[in-house]
Write a protein that binds this DNA or RNA. Structure first.
Lengths: 224, 224
DNA sequence: TTTTGTGAACTAGTTCACAGCT
DNA sequence: AGCTGTGAACTAGTTCACAAAA
Protein backbone atom coordinates (compact mmCIF):
# COMPACT_ATOMS: atom_id res chain seq x y z
CA UNK A 1 0.00 0.00 0.00
CA UNK A 2 1.46 3.36 -1.03
CA UNK A 3 0.50 6.83 0.11
CA UNK A 4 -2.62 8.01 -1.69
CA UNK A 5 -3.63 11.36 -3.16
CA UNK A 6 -6.00 12.75 -0.54
CA UNK A 7 -8.45 14.39 -2.91
CA UNK A 8 -9.08 11.16 -4.83
CA UNK A 9 -8.64 8.19 -2.55
CA UNK A 10 -8.38 5.25 -4.90
CA UNK A 11 -8.35 2.23 -2.64
CA UNK A 12 -11.42 2.81 -0.51
CA UNK A 13 -14.85 1.67 -1.57
CA UNK A 14 -17.47 4.39 -1.88
CA UNK A 15 -20.85 3.32 -0.54
CA UNK A 16 -23.87 2.66 -2.71
CA UNK A 17 -25.69 5.37 -0.77
CA UNK A 18 -23.07 7.99 -1.59
CA UNK A 19 -23.05 6.98 -5.25
CA UNK A 20 -26.80 7.42 -5.45
CA UNK A 21 -26.64 10.82 -3.81
CA UNK A 22 -24.03 12.07 -6.27
CA UNK A 23 -26.50 11.30 -9.02
CA UNK A 24 -29.21 13.16 -7.12
CA UNK A 25 -26.93 16.19 -6.67
CA UNK A 26 -26.23 16.25 -10.39
CA UNK A 27 -29.94 16.33 -11.11
CA UNK A 28 -30.43 19.20 -8.69
CA UNK A 29 -27.60 21.12 -10.34
CA UNK A 30 -29.12 20.55 -13.77
CA UNK A 31 -32.33 22.13 -12.51
CA UNK A 32 -30.45 25.09 -11.01
CA UNK A 33 -28.32 25.55 -14.12
CA UNK A 34 -31.41 25.51 -16.33
CA UNK A 35 -32.88 28.20 -14.06
CA UNK A 36 -29.77 30.31 -14.58
CA UNK A 37 -28.42 29.96 -11.03
CA UNK A 38 -24.65 30.55 -11.03
CA UNK A 39 -23.58 29.59 -7.50
CA UNK A 40 -25.23 27.64 -4.69
CA UNK A 41 -24.28 26.97 -1.09
CA UNK A 42 -24.69 23.53 0.44
CA UNK A 43 -27.27 25.05 2.78
CA UNK A 44 -29.40 26.46 -0.05
CA UNK A 45 -29.10 23.23 -2.03
CA UNK A 46 -30.15 21.22 1.02
CA UNK A 47 -33.15 23.43 1.70
CA UNK A 48 -34.37 23.50 -1.87
CA UNK A 49 -34.13 19.75 -2.42
CA UNK A 50 -34.68 18.45 1.10
CA UNK A 51 -31.18 17.17 1.69
CA UNK A 52 -28.65 17.62 4.51
CA UNK A 53 -26.05 20.36 4.00
CA UNK A 54 -23.25 18.62 5.92
CA UNK A 55 -23.83 15.45 3.96
CA UNK A 56 -23.64 17.26 0.63
CA UNK A 57 -20.35 18.84 1.69
CA UNK A 58 -18.94 15.57 2.93
CA UNK A 59 -19.96 13.65 -0.18
CA UNK A 60 -18.40 16.25 -2.46
CA UNK A 61 -15.29 16.87 -0.36
CA UNK A 62 -14.44 13.20 -0.69
CA UNK A 63 -13.69 13.74 -4.38
CA UNK A 64 -11.96 17.10 -4.20
CA UNK A 65 -12.29 20.67 -2.98
CA UNK A 66 -14.97 21.94 -5.32
CA UNK A 67 -16.38 24.69 -3.15
CA UNK A 68 -15.28 28.24 -2.42
CA UNK A 69 -15.51 29.36 1.21
CA UNK A 70 -17.81 32.26 1.72
CA UNK A 71 -19.39 31.64 -1.70
CA UNK A 72 -20.53 28.05 -2.16
CA UNK A 73 -20.21 25.98 -5.33
CA UNK A 74 -20.17 27.22 -8.91
CA UNK A 75 -23.10 25.36 -10.46
CA UNK A 76 -21.62 24.73 -13.90
CA UNK A 77 -18.26 23.75 -12.50
CA UNK A 78 -19.68 21.34 -9.94
CA UNK A 79 -21.94 19.86 -12.60
CA UNK A 80 -18.90 19.21 -14.76
CA UNK A 81 -17.06 17.60 -11.86
CA UNK A 82 -20.02 15.40 -10.96
CA UNK A 83 -20.49 14.28 -14.55
CA UNK A 84 -16.85 13.26 -14.58
CA UNK A 85 -17.05 11.48 -11.21
CA UNK A 86 -20.16 9.61 -12.39
CA UNK A 87 -18.43 8.61 -15.61
CA UNK A 88 -20.88 10.64 -17.69
CA UNK A 89 -18.21 12.70 -19.45
CA UNK A 90 -18.33 10.06 -22.18
CA UNK A 91 -21.40 8.24 -23.54
CA UNK A 92 -22.26 5.22 -21.41
CA UNK A 93 -23.48 2.38 -23.63
CA UNK A 94 -26.25 0.09 -22.42
CA UNK A 95 -27.74 -3.19 -23.65
CA UNK A 96 -31.06 -4.55 -22.44
CA UNK A 97 -31.59 -8.30 -22.11
CA UNK A 98 -35.26 -9.14 -22.59
CA UNK A 99 -37.52 -7.39 -25.10
CA UNK A 100 -40.75 -7.92 -23.19
CA UNK A 101 -42.98 -5.08 -21.99
CA UNK A 102 -40.46 -3.95 -19.39
CA UNK A 103 -37.37 -4.26 -21.58
CA UNK A 104 -39.02 -2.30 -24.38
CA UNK A 105 -40.23 0.38 -21.96
CA UNK A 106 -36.72 0.77 -20.53
CA UNK A 107 -35.19 0.90 -24.02
CA UNK A 108 -37.31 3.93 -24.87
CA UNK A 109 -37.26 5.52 -21.41
CA UNK A 110 -36.50 9.19 -22.09
CA UNK A 111 -34.74 9.72 -18.74
CA UNK A 112 -31.82 7.57 -19.83
CA UNK A 113 -31.07 9.40 -23.07
CA UNK A 114 -31.49 12.72 -21.32
CA UNK A 115 -28.59 12.06 -18.97
CA UNK A 116 -26.39 10.83 -21.80
CA UNK A 117 -26.87 7.06 -21.78
CA UNK A 118 -27.09 5.33 -25.16
CA UNK A 119 -29.41 2.32 -25.25
CA UNK A 120 -27.66 0.46 -27.99
CA UNK A 121 -29.31 -2.95 -28.27
CA UNK A 122 -32.11 -5.20 -27.04
CA UNK A 123 -31.79 -8.98 -26.83
CA UNK A 124 -34.43 -11.69 -26.79
CA UNK A 125 -34.86 -15.37 -27.53
CA UNK A 126 -38.23 -15.09 -29.24
CA UNK A 127 -37.92 -15.65 -32.98
CA UNK A 128 -40.66 -13.22 -33.89
CA UNK A 129 -39.00 -10.32 -32.10
CA UNK A 130 -35.48 -10.68 -33.49
CA UNK A 131 -34.59 -8.14 -36.17
CA UNK A 132 -37.41 -5.84 -35.13
CA UNK A 133 -36.98 -2.56 -33.26
CA UNK A 134 -38.52 -0.84 -30.25
CA UNK A 135 -40.76 2.13 -31.05
CA UNK A 136 -37.82 4.36 -30.28
CA UNK A 137 -35.69 2.45 -32.78
CA UNK A 138 -33.55 0.16 -30.63
CA UNK A 139 -32.77 -3.01 -32.56
CA UNK A 140 -33.61 -6.44 -31.11
CA UNK A 141 -30.91 -9.11 -31.49
CA UNK A 142 -30.87 -12.84 -30.76
CA UNK A 143 -29.28 -13.58 -27.42
CA UNK A 144 -26.75 -15.77 -29.25
CA UNK A 145 -25.31 -12.61 -30.78
CA UNK A 146 -24.75 -11.01 -27.40
CA UNK A 147 -21.00 -11.51 -27.15
CA UNK A 148 -20.41 -10.23 -30.68
CA UNK A 149 -22.62 -7.16 -30.24
CA UNK A 150 -21.10 -6.32 -26.83
CA UNK A 151 -17.64 -6.20 -28.41
CA UNK A 152 -18.74 -4.33 -31.51
CA UNK A 153 -20.89 -1.81 -29.65
CA UNK A 154 -18.58 -1.51 -26.62
CA UNK A 155 -21.39 -2.12 -24.13
CA UNK A 156 -20.69 -0.85 -20.60
CA UNK A 157 -23.84 -1.88 -18.74
CA UNK A 158 -26.27 -4.77 -19.18
CA UNK A 159 -29.86 -4.40 -17.99
CA UNK A 160 -31.61 -7.67 -17.13
CA UNK A 161 -35.34 -7.56 -17.86
CA UNK A 162 -36.18 -11.22 -18.39
CA UNK A 163 -38.41 -13.53 -16.31
CA UNK A 164 -36.91 -14.79 -13.02
CA UNK A 165 -36.16 -18.30 -14.26
CA UNK A 166 -33.94 -17.15 -17.12
CA UNK A 167 -32.24 -14.30 -15.25
CA UNK A 168 -29.22 -16.19 -13.92
CA UNK A 169 -28.57 -17.60 -17.38
CA UNK A 170 -28.59 -14.25 -19.15
CA UNK A 171 -26.45 -12.59 -16.49
CA UNK A 172 -23.91 -15.38 -16.93
CA UNK A 173 -23.89 -14.68 -20.66
CA UNK A 174 -23.34 -11.00 -19.94
CA UNK A 175 -20.49 -11.66 -17.50
CA UNK A 176 -18.80 -14.05 -19.92
CA UNK A 177 -19.01 -11.42 -22.63
CA UNK A 178 -17.02 -9.08 -20.38
CA UNK A 179 -19.76 -6.81 -19.03
CA UNK A 180 -18.68 -5.30 -15.69
CA UNK A 181 -21.96 -3.73 -14.50
CA UNK A 182 -25.48 -5.15 -14.40
CA UNK A 183 -28.81 -3.54 -13.54
CA UNK A 184 -31.18 -6.36 -12.63
CA UNK A 185 -34.96 -5.99 -12.70
CA UNK A 186 -35.72 -9.66 -12.18
CA UNK A 187 -36.83 -10.78 -8.73
CA UNK A 188 -34.40 -12.78 -6.58
CA UNK A 189 -30.71 -12.11 -6.31
CA UNK A 190 -28.28 -13.19 -9.00
CA UNK A 191 -24.77 -14.51 -8.50
CA UNK A 192 -22.00 -12.58 -10.21
CA UNK A 193 -18.22 -12.64 -9.69
CA UNK A 194 -16.90 -10.00 -7.26
CA UNK A 195 -15.40 -7.93 -10.08
CA UNK A 196 -18.88 -7.34 -11.55
CA UNK A 197 -21.05 -4.61 -10.05
CA UNK A 198 -24.67 -5.70 -9.67
CA UNK A 199 -27.55 -3.44 -8.78
CA UNK A 200 -31.03 -4.82 -8.15
CA UNK A 201 -34.30 -3.02 -8.72
CA UNK A 202 -36.89 -5.31 -7.23
CA UNK A 203 -40.36 -4.11 -8.16
CA UNK A 204 -42.20 -6.68 -6.05
CA UNK A 205 -40.16 -5.85 -2.95
CA UNK A 206 -40.92 -2.14 -3.50
CA UNK A 207 -44.67 -2.73 -3.67
CA UNK A 208 -44.63 -5.19 -0.79
CA UNK A 209 -42.77 -2.84 1.49
CA UNK A 210 -45.46 -0.22 0.83
CA UNK A 211 -48.10 -2.82 1.59
CA UNK A 212 -46.23 -3.59 4.82
CA UNK A 213 -46.41 0.02 5.97
CA UNK A 214 -50.12 0.19 5.14
CA UNK A 215 -50.70 -3.00 7.14
CA UNK A 216 -48.78 -1.59 10.13
CA UNK A 217 -50.83 1.57 9.99
CA UNK A 218 -54.00 -0.51 10.12
CA UNK A 219 -52.65 -2.49 13.09
CA UNK A 220 -51.82 0.78 14.84
CA UNK A 221 -55.37 2.07 14.42
CA UNK A 222 -56.78 -1.24 15.65
CA UNK A 223 -54.44 -1.71 18.65
CA UNK A 224 -54.32 1.97 19.66
CA UNK B 1 -47.15 5.74 26.82
CA UNK B 2 -48.49 2.43 28.08
CA UNK B 3 -46.74 -0.93 28.31
CA UNK B 4 -46.75 -2.64 24.90
CA UNK B 5 -47.19 -6.23 23.81
CA UNK B 6 -43.60 -7.36 23.27
CA UNK B 7 -44.25 -9.54 20.26
CA UNK B 8 -45.86 -6.75 18.24
CA UNK B 9 -44.45 -3.40 19.26
CA UNK B 10 -46.87 -0.89 17.84
CA UNK B 11 -45.26 2.48 18.42
CA UNK B 12 -41.82 1.98 16.91
CA UNK B 13 -41.11 2.55 13.25
CA UNK B 14 -39.75 -0.45 11.33
CA UNK B 15 -36.99 0.52 8.94
CA UNK B 16 -37.35 0.46 5.18
CA UNK B 17 -34.46 -2.02 5.09
CA UNK B 18 -36.25 -4.47 7.37
CA UNK B 19 -39.48 -4.14 5.38
CA UNK B 20 -37.66 -4.98 2.17
CA UNK B 21 -36.00 -8.00 3.73
CA UNK B 22 -39.32 -9.40 4.95
CA UNK B 23 -40.46 -9.39 1.35
CA UNK B 24 -37.25 -11.15 0.32
CA UNK B 25 -37.73 -13.80 3.01
CA UNK B 26 -41.25 -14.45 1.77
CA UNK B 27 -39.94 -15.04 -1.71
CA UNK B 28 -37.33 -17.47 -0.42
CA UNK B 29 -39.99 -19.35 1.50
CA UNK B 30 -42.19 -19.55 -1.59
CA UNK B 31 -39.31 -21.21 -3.42
CA UNK B 32 -38.70 -23.64 -0.55
CA UNK B 33 -42.38 -24.43 -0.21
CA UNK B 34 -42.68 -25.13 -3.94
CA UNK B 35 -39.71 -27.48 -3.57
CA UNK B 36 -41.55 -29.34 -0.82
CA UNK B 37 -39.27 -28.20 2.03
CA UNK B 38 -41.14 -28.41 5.35
CA UNK B 39 -38.80 -26.71 7.83
CA UNK B 40 -35.76 -24.46 7.47
CA UNK B 41 -33.26 -23.05 9.95
CA UNK B 42 -32.10 -19.46 9.74
CA UNK B 43 -28.63 -20.81 8.98
CA UNK B 44 -29.78 -22.92 6.02
CA UNK B 45 -31.95 -20.08 4.72
CA UNK B 46 -29.02 -17.68 4.98
CA UNK B 47 -26.66 -20.02 3.16
CA UNK B 48 -29.07 -20.85 0.37
CA UNK B 49 -30.03 -17.25 -0.36
CA UNK B 50 -26.87 -15.40 0.71
CA UNK B 51 -28.34 -13.69 3.74
CA UNK B 52 -27.19 -13.37 7.36
CA UNK B 53 -28.70 -15.88 9.80
CA UNK B 54 -28.67 -13.55 12.81
CA UNK B 55 -30.37 -10.86 10.80
CA UNK B 56 -33.12 -13.20 9.63
CA UNK B 57 -33.75 -14.24 13.23
CA UNK B 58 -33.76 -10.67 14.46
CA UNK B 59 -36.07 -9.44 11.71
CA UNK B 60 -38.54 -12.25 12.38
CA UNK B 61 -38.31 -12.17 16.17
CA UNK B 62 -39.39 -8.54 16.07
CA UNK B 63 -42.87 -9.67 14.98
CA UNK B 64 -43.26 -12.75 17.16
CA UNK B 65 -41.69 -16.07 18.11
CA UNK B 66 -42.16 -17.98 14.89
CA UNK B 67 -39.28 -20.45 15.25
CA UNK B 68 -38.88 -23.68 17.18
CA UNK B 69 -35.54 -24.10 18.97
CA UNK B 70 -33.59 -27.07 17.74
CA UNK B 71 -35.77 -27.26 14.62
CA UNK B 72 -35.97 -23.95 12.79
CA UNK B 73 -39.06 -22.46 11.12
CA UNK B 74 -41.99 -24.31 9.61
CA UNK B 75 -41.99 -23.06 6.03
CA UNK B 76 -45.74 -22.92 5.46
CA UNK B 77 -46.39 -21.37 8.84
CA UNK B 78 -43.74 -18.69 8.47
CA UNK B 79 -44.99 -17.96 4.97
CA UNK B 80 -48.46 -17.39 6.35
CA UNK B 81 -47.11 -15.11 9.09
CA UNK B 82 -45.04 -13.09 6.63
CA UNK B 83 -47.94 -12.67 4.25
CA UNK B 84 -49.96 -11.31 7.13
CA UNK B 85 -47.18 -8.99 8.32
CA UNK B 86 -46.76 -7.68 4.77
CA UNK B 87 -50.51 -7.12 4.46
CA UNK B 88 -50.78 -9.71 1.70
CA UNK B 89 -53.46 -11.76 3.45
CA UNK B 90 -55.97 -9.69 1.52
CA UNK B 91 -55.73 -8.46 -2.09
CA UNK B 92 -53.78 -5.21 -2.31
CA UNK B 93 -55.31 -2.97 -4.95
CA UNK B 94 -53.09 -0.80 -7.13
CA UNK B 95 -53.69 2.03 -9.60
CA UNK B 96 -51.06 3.25 -12.05
CA UNK B 97 -50.89 6.90 -13.02
CA UNK B 98 -49.47 7.27 -16.51
CA UNK B 99 -50.25 4.88 -19.36
CA UNK B 100 -47.00 5.42 -21.26
CA UNK B 101 -44.54 2.62 -22.03
CA UNK B 102 -43.52 2.25 -18.39
CA UNK B 103 -47.03 2.46 -16.92
CA UNK B 104 -48.34 -0.12 -19.37
CA UNK B 105 -45.39 -2.44 -18.70
CA UNK B 106 -45.97 -2.19 -14.94
CA UNK B 107 -49.71 -2.79 -15.36
CA UNK B 108 -49.03 -6.13 -17.04
CA UNK B 109 -45.96 -7.07 -14.97
CA UNK B 110 -46.55 -10.70 -14.01
CA UNK B 111 -44.56 -10.46 -10.75
CA UNK B 112 -47.24 -8.23 -9.21
CA UNK B 113 -50.20 -10.54 -9.86
CA UNK B 114 -48.15 -13.51 -8.74
CA UNK B 115 -47.72 -12.13 -5.24
CA UNK B 116 -51.40 -11.21 -4.99
CA UNK B 117 -51.50 -7.58 -6.08
CA UNK B 118 -54.41 -6.50 -8.25
CA UNK B 119 -53.61 -3.82 -10.81
CA UNK B 120 -57.03 -2.31 -11.03
CA UNK B 121 -56.75 0.80 -13.19
CA UNK B 122 -54.49 2.94 -15.35
CA UNK B 123 -54.87 6.72 -15.67
CA UNK B 124 -53.73 9.10 -18.36
CA UNK B 125 -54.51 12.52 -19.76
CA UNK B 126 -54.15 11.59 -23.43
CA UNK B 127 -57.54 11.51 -25.16
CA UNK B 128 -56.64 8.67 -27.49
CA UNK B 129 -55.70 6.33 -24.65
CA UNK B 130 -58.74 6.80 -22.44
CA UNK B 131 -61.23 3.93 -22.56
CA UNK B 132 -58.63 1.57 -24.01
CA UNK B 133 -56.94 -1.25 -22.11
CA UNK B 134 -53.43 -2.56 -21.60
CA UNK B 135 -52.62 -5.84 -23.35
CA UNK B 136 -53.29 -7.60 -20.08
CA UNK B 137 -56.72 -5.95 -19.88
CA UNK B 138 -56.23 -3.10 -17.39
CA UNK B 139 -58.59 -0.27 -18.27
CA UNK B 140 -57.27 3.28 -18.90
CA UNK B 141 -59.28 6.09 -17.28
CA UNK B 142 -59.06 9.87 -17.56
CA UNK B 143 -57.12 11.35 -14.66
CA UNK B 144 -60.21 13.41 -13.82
CA UNK B 145 -61.95 10.22 -12.79
CA UNK B 146 -59.22 9.30 -10.33
CA UNK B 147 -61.02 10.20 -7.13
CA UNK B 148 -64.17 8.38 -8.17
CA UNK B 149 -62.33 5.24 -9.27
CA UNK B 150 -60.15 5.19 -6.12
CA UNK B 151 -63.27 5.13 -3.96
CA UNK B 152 -65.13 2.63 -6.08
CA UNK B 153 -62.18 0.28 -6.54
CA UNK B 154 -60.79 0.77 -3.01
CA UNK B 155 -57.27 1.55 -4.26
CA UNK B 156 -54.53 1.01 -1.67
CA UNK B 157 -51.41 2.04 -3.59
CA UNK B 158 -50.83 4.55 -6.40
CA UNK B 159 -47.91 4.03 -8.79
CA UNK B 160 -46.60 7.21 -10.42
CA UNK B 161 -45.27 6.57 -13.94
CA UNK B 162 -45.65 9.99 -15.57
CA UNK B 163 -42.96 12.39 -16.82
CA UNK B 164 -41.08 14.36 -14.15
CA UNK B 165 -42.88 17.64 -14.77
CA UNK B 166 -46.34 16.23 -14.11
CA UNK B 167 -45.35 13.95 -11.22
CA UNK B 168 -46.00 16.35 -8.33
CA UNK B 169 -49.43 17.18 -9.78
CA UNK B 170 -50.55 13.58 -10.05
CA UNK B 171 -49.24 12.65 -6.62
CA UNK B 172 -51.23 15.57 -5.20
CA UNK B 173 -54.33 14.19 -6.91
CA UNK B 174 -53.63 10.78 -5.41
CA UNK B 175 -53.12 12.17 -1.91
CA UNK B 176 -56.28 14.26 -2.12
CA UNK B 177 -58.20 11.16 -3.17
CA UNK B 178 -57.10 9.49 0.06
CA UNK B 179 -54.29 7.23 -1.18
CA UNK B 180 -51.87 6.45 1.68
CA UNK B 181 -49.00 4.81 -0.22
CA UNK B 182 -47.22 5.85 -3.42
CA UNK B 183 -44.60 4.09 -5.51
CA UNK B 184 -42.88 6.77 -7.58
CA UNK B 185 -40.93 6.02 -10.76
CA UNK B 186 -40.48 9.63 -11.80
CA UNK B 187 -37.08 11.23 -11.21
CA UNK B 188 -36.72 13.80 -8.44
CA UNK B 189 -38.34 13.58 -5.05
CA UNK B 190 -42.00 14.39 -4.52
CA UNK B 191 -43.55 16.15 -1.55
CA UNK B 192 -46.24 14.24 0.31
CA UNK B 193 -47.79 14.77 3.74
CA UNK B 194 -46.13 12.77 6.55
CA UNK B 195 -49.10 10.38 6.79
CA UNK B 196 -48.47 9.19 3.22
CA UNK B 197 -45.78 6.57 2.61
CA UNK B 198 -43.69 7.32 -0.45
CA UNK B 199 -41.20 4.97 -2.06
CA UNK B 200 -39.01 6.09 -4.94
CA UNK B 201 -37.61 3.89 -7.69
CA UNK B 202 -35.22 6.13 -9.54
CA UNK B 203 -34.08 4.45 -12.74
CA UNK B 204 -31.61 7.16 -13.71
CA UNK B 205 -29.95 7.10 -10.29
CA UNK B 206 -29.64 3.31 -10.54
CA UNK B 207 -27.89 3.46 -13.90
CA UNK B 208 -25.73 6.40 -12.88
CA UNK B 209 -24.52 4.67 -9.76
CA UNK B 210 -23.40 1.73 -11.90
CA UNK B 211 -21.67 4.15 -14.23
CA UNK B 212 -19.97 5.66 -11.19
CA UNK B 213 -18.52 2.32 -10.12
CA UNK B 214 -17.29 1.63 -13.65
CA UNK B 215 -15.62 5.04 -13.73
CA UNK B 216 -13.92 4.39 -10.36
CA UNK B 217 -12.66 1.06 -11.60
CA UNK B 218 -11.12 2.79 -14.59
CA UNK B 219 -9.51 5.37 -12.33
CA UNK B 220 -8.10 2.58 -10.18
CA UNK B 221 -6.51 0.89 -13.18
CA UNK B 222 -5.07 4.20 -14.34
CA UNK B 223 -3.78 5.43 -10.96
CA UNK B 224 -2.65 2.05 -9.63
C1' DT C 1 -27.66 -31.71 20.25
C1' DT C 2 -29.57 -28.15 17.50
C1' DT C 3 -31.29 -23.80 16.82
C1' DT C 4 -33.81 -19.88 18.38
C1' DG C 5 -34.11 -15.18 20.41
C1' DT C 6 -31.42 -11.46 22.05
C1' DG C 7 -28.05 -8.40 24.72
C1' DA C 8 -23.60 -6.76 23.66
C1' DA C 9 -20.13 -5.47 20.43
C1' DC C 10 -19.18 -3.76 16.31
C1' DT C 11 -19.58 -1.27 11.79
C1' DA C 12 -21.57 2.03 8.78
C1' DG C 13 -23.80 6.20 7.99
C1' DT C 14 -25.41 10.80 9.41
C1' DT C 15 -25.32 15.14 11.67
C1' DC C 16 -23.12 18.50 14.57
C1' DA C 17 -20.14 22.12 15.34
C1' DC C 18 -16.30 24.73 14.46
C1' DA C 19 -11.51 25.97 12.73
C1' DG C 20 -9.95 28.09 8.87
C1' DC C 21 -10.30 30.12 4.28
C1' DT C 22 -12.24 33.81 1.09
C1' DA D 1 -19.54 37.99 7.42
C1' DG D 2 -20.34 33.60 5.01
C1' DC D 3 -19.43 29.06 3.79
C1' DT D 4 -16.50 25.08 3.15
C1' DG D 5 -14.13 20.98 4.75
C1' DT D 6 -13.73 17.89 8.49
C1' DG D 7 -12.92 15.72 13.18
C1' DA D 8 -15.96 14.43 16.78
C1' DA D 9 -20.40 12.94 18.40
C1' DC D 10 -24.20 10.58 17.50
C1' DT D 11 -27.61 7.33 15.37
C1' DA D 12 -28.80 3.36 12.75
C1' DG D 13 -27.90 -1.10 11.20
C1' DT D 14 -25.41 -5.53 11.37
C1' DT D 15 -23.11 -9.36 13.31
C1' DC D 16 -21.40 -11.93 17.21
C1' DA D 17 -21.89 -15.03 20.76
C1' DC D 18 -24.39 -17.35 24.12
C1' DA D 19 -28.16 -18.49 27.50
C1' DA D 20 -32.38 -20.81 27.19
C1' DA D 21 -35.62 -23.90 24.90
C1' DA D 22 -36.95 -28.10 22.44
Amino acid sequence: MTERNKARPVGEQVSELTAGRLSVYLRCLNTLDAAGVKTISSKALAEQFQLNAAQIRKDLAYFGEFGVRGVGYYVKELKRHLRMILGLDRTVRVAILGAGNLGLALADYPGFRQEGFAIVALFDTERGKIGRRSRGGVRIYAIGEFRKVVKRERIDIAVVAVPADSAQGVVNTAVQAGVRAVLNFSPGSLKVPPAVKLKNVDLTVSLESLSFFLAREQAEVANG
